[in-house]
Design a protein around this nucleic acid. Structure first.
Lengths: 203, 203
DNA sequence: ACCTGAACACCGTTCAAGT
DNA sequence: ACCTGAACACCGTTCAAGT
């Protein structure tokens, strides 16, 4: 054994990421382990550490791919909607759909504890920022007389709000029953928030 | 050894819970292990399994205590505020404070994956319901002409929203900088949501 | 009846040794 | 240069054996 060179460093990385995403999609974050990933791609655990710093990096890379997929979904959604208000609403619904359809992969982003405050790599930060920027852009027309600062606040409040409803509901921590479905909650949040926001402007 | 009877079953449970909460408060959910808990209370790992079904149950019991502490804080907050609008705002701020001051214990509630849908024990469900009920009660005066259904939706949308902002901000996933502080985001959310909600009523 | 200690089947991570 | 395989220090969980 040893010295196989069947694959390049980059190939092994991508194979490992694919394997990890498969495992998580099936068994959840709890089911993921370095040894399982290694076995799936036909290499030893040791090799994984030749190509990633540790399991945390592998997880964050996988999460970055999930954030990319979410971005693509939202971009496509934004391309298909009419006015700003309808677009924000559509983005909210797209977020719910993405979270429900990719429960485990989406969940891993939030179950995996991030490294200390400023140790978050730039390539990860950029993904987060890109998604938020999309929300800001969509919100823009509704907040013409609003400062950039206030726009940033609004986008973050809405994004965080929608996310909170999703994560609590999907992990059964919101006592959601009957007509208080997740989409109903998100629509209520967005609807009322935007009413308040535009009311401000007209004063 | 064996047959010590130094403590009752209930005493051992409480000692284990206290130890677990200490460990998590210091090292976070990742730092928790059955062996550490056992060592701290001076018993063997085996004993833990005589008193809890497994580590998951221990964690959920500890989380229930955290939910109780949160409830007490919110109850005290509600007792000290003036009108409904101010009270909801105060509850939001209390939630932020609690989350920031008990980061790890609060975080464990959300990092620990809950059992399957309906396998959540009643004593846990009750804790969640009680916190939500408090929000509903506080919201009540603002929604006089609103159905119970709509009130339930509003309480859940707000609670989920506030939670989402907290969890994203506290785990550095909201790109929060400068004036877009966590309290500013929560205030924006509550303020605009309530404006929208009361505007509905006046139509 | 109550508790231990060792065992089982797993972990993440490292690194000397092989080709 | 690339990869392995074994080792280290941990896990959660079980259960025969001791008192």
């Amino acid at each position: 054994m040893a010295r196989r060179s069947d694959h390049s460093r980059e190939q092994i990385q991508q194979m490992a990421l694919d394997a990890a995403r498969d495992i998580v999609a099936r068994d959840g974050y709890t089911g993921l382990s370095a040894r399982k990933v290694a076995k799936t791609i036909g290499y030893t655990v040791g090799t994984l550490y030749l190509v990633f710093a540790n399991l945390d990096e592998l997880v964050m890379r996988a999460n970055a791919q999930t954030l990319d997929a979410l971005y693509e979904t939202m971009l496509a959604t934004k391309a298909r909607c009419k006015n700003a208000r309808a677009c924000i609403m559509a983005l909210g619904r797209a977020y719910i759909r993405f979270a429900s359809e990719n429960t485990h992969l989406w969940g891993m982003i939030y179950e995996h504890p991030l490294p200390d405050r400023d140790a978050i790599p730039d390539w990860y930060r950029e993904r987060v920022a890109r998604n938020l920027a999309l929300v800001e852009d969509t919100l823009q027309p509704l907040a013409k007389n609003t400062s950039a600062q206030e726009l940033a606040v609004a986008a973050r409040a809405l994004w965080g709000g929608v996310h909170g409803i999703c994560i609590l509901a999907l992990t059964n921590k919101l006592d959601v029953v009957g007509a208080a479905s997740v989409p109903a909650l998100v629509e209520s949040l967005i609807d009322n928030y935007l009413k308040g926001l535009t009311a401000n402007r007209q004063r």
